[in-house]
Design a protein around this nucleic acid. Structure first.
Lengths: 334, 334
DNA sequence: CTGAAAGCGCTTACAG
DNA sequence: CTGAAAGCGCTTACAG
């Protein structure tokens, strides 16, 4: 039988109201009383029952995180885990707890109706039609991670287009003007946004955009290598290549090695994200890094904020991408 | 104002006791009553308030998962995420929810006292002294993932020694008798257990164990490559190498490539785990795979079981390792 | 088979 | 500054 608020009250010679007020930092308690009660609480190892408090308070101080937890996910998408960690961290700092839900498995509607959590953060990959309906119809507090097409939802995202621009501008700084883009599938949103940012920056700066230097692959190692071989043996050859993913950068470096093309002496390259493969790439790649953990933190903070002001609209890019200089780019002599 | 059990009772013309019994599948309700009440529940979109139910029932139906959520963790340890997914899956299937806790951040003792969750699964890396004390002193329901040195705790783990044995036996089947082991730090438990299993199997089968073929590295790419170069240029040269990690296997294949050693024609190799790097290794490695997601499931089930029988001791290896044949091993002509 | 009542352990007006 | 009381929304003996 755990110790309850009654035990504390009795032991301290006060009412349970007083104990409760001290627990919740309600002002208007005399200092001697507060001290006495706090002494008793710690002596008895008292902590308030969270369910009872939640019932009375009508809030669980718990936020759910909904994601696809496929078999393959942990290995192919470490970023998802990192986002989660960021969310967890920011919630914990505010006294909230973090509940993980699998999109495929959980009866989300029932959990929402049961008020198991006060709000939900939905990873873009798990935003199915029913989830969408639920959020809209029940006006349930939420943040989507990843820019959804429907603007009635609240969301945060990383600015991939800006990432593409930053990659371009760095190469420009290095003296490159003939720049190719090695991308993934045309249906890959992230790759496309990076490409779009690159293109816009390209035209802003008055550089020429050769269509044969914009390449879409299926994102695989094999396809990346072949595309890289074509780029490197084509004429004219670009001075630099933006690889839209880590794996494509790996493929690119592999192809350059086969052709004995010196990186970055003859051709420079840049990619995105430090993981999972950049540590295996030679030369160590310069990359545009996005702190997705920080985006997770931002999502959590925004959601907690929205809990107070339900009418608040959150639709924003968080956490600017930053450049991490490696050895795959270098200032060219002019 | 959400709909409550009272609303359902009124609308169905029964008492709240009756509704509650139907909710909890308590036997002794007439079929017509049950049907009427269930119709009302679904018409009103009713789901019982989980906090109120938990308060009355004195259980949260929630299990915590404690892990180190370092910045680097998501990228260096995808297995942790996979274990979590397994735990989540098994809990969800039993109507429990999954709460994620960071070892560095959360006030675990307070949460335990507040009865936020009914039990906890502790990832080995997060089993610090205070956590240990808490579990023992409060007799709190728990499962540790990874074999702790103190036997008063409940735990599950994978059988890494068996993995080492399986790797060895496969190579033996392929006709190799001169087998080296390329390991990580001498303080790396997993690597050591694999090594121990290998050694035992080696002596069981009467093969010779050359001490210069047991190599400890710091587990890095560079150290792995150097050790591999030494092994491959040494005399006598082993017929096969067991690489205790994915990265070491990558390093080994790299070194063989540099020396133009044909894999698996001249030397065979085998490693553990499919991720994160095996897809980048040429030839595609044969590997001993451990389904850590399944271990997560097992941990969750054991913990739920232990909730009913607090005196139950769980100390067991779950989920046998299995061999996945690749192209880095091959039956030798004899 | 059904229901009235006590109780789970808190919070929050409200009165003093 | 402090406390009595109502209430949060369920479950669970217990009585009928």
């Amino acid at each position: 039988m755990p110790v309850t608020i009654k035990d504390v009250a009795r032991e301290a010679g006060v009412s349970i109201s007083t104990v409760s007020k001290i627990l919740n930092d309600v002002p208007g308690i005399s200092e001697p009383t507060r001290q006495r009660v706090e002494e008793v609480m710690s002596r008895l190892d008292y902590a308030p029952n969270s369910r009872a408090a939640g019932l009375a308070r009508k809030s669980s101080r718990c936020i759910a995180f909904l994601a696809d937890l496929d078999e393959s996910e942990p290995y192919t998408n470490p970023h998802l885990f990192d986002i989660m960690c960021g969310v967890q961290e920011a919630l914990c700092a505010k006294g909230y707890s973090f509940m993980l839900l699998d999109a495929m498995q959980s009866d989300l509607e029932k959990m929402v109706l049961s008020r198991v959590f006060d709000g939900i953060i939905v990873h873009g990959g798990a935003l199915t039609r029913p989830v969408y309906q639920l959020l809209i119809n029940r006006k349930f507090p939420h943040i989507v991670i990843g820019h959804p097409s429907d603007t009635r939802l609240n969301w945060v995202d990383t600015d991939n287009a800006l990432g593409g621009r930053i990659a371009f501008e760095h190469l420009l700084d290095c003296g490159c003007r003939d720049i190719a883009f090695l991308g993934a599938l045309e249906t890959d949103d992230i790759s496309n946004e990076r490409l779009a940012g690159f293109r816009r920056a390209l035209s802003d700066s008055g550089c020429e955009c050769r269509s044969e230097w914009i390449i879409h692959t299926d994102g695989s190692l094999g396809a990346g290598r072949e595309a890289a071989l074509r780029l490197l043996t084509g004429s004219p050859r670009p001075q630099a290549v933006i690889c839209s993913s880590n794996l494509l950068a790996y493929a690119f470096a592999l192809a350059a090695g086969e052709l004995d093309v010196d990186l970055p002496g003859e051709v420079q390259f840049i990619t995105f994200d430090r993981y999972p493969y950049s540590s295996l790439i030679t030369p160590e790649p310069t990359l545009v890094q996005i702190d997705v953990r920080d985006m997770g933190r931002a999502a959590a903070k925004q959601l907690l904020h929205a809990l107070k002001k339900p009418e608040l609209r959150v639709q924003t890019y968080t956490t600017l991408p930053s450049l991490i200089a490696g050895k795959s780019t270098i200032k060219r002599q002019t």
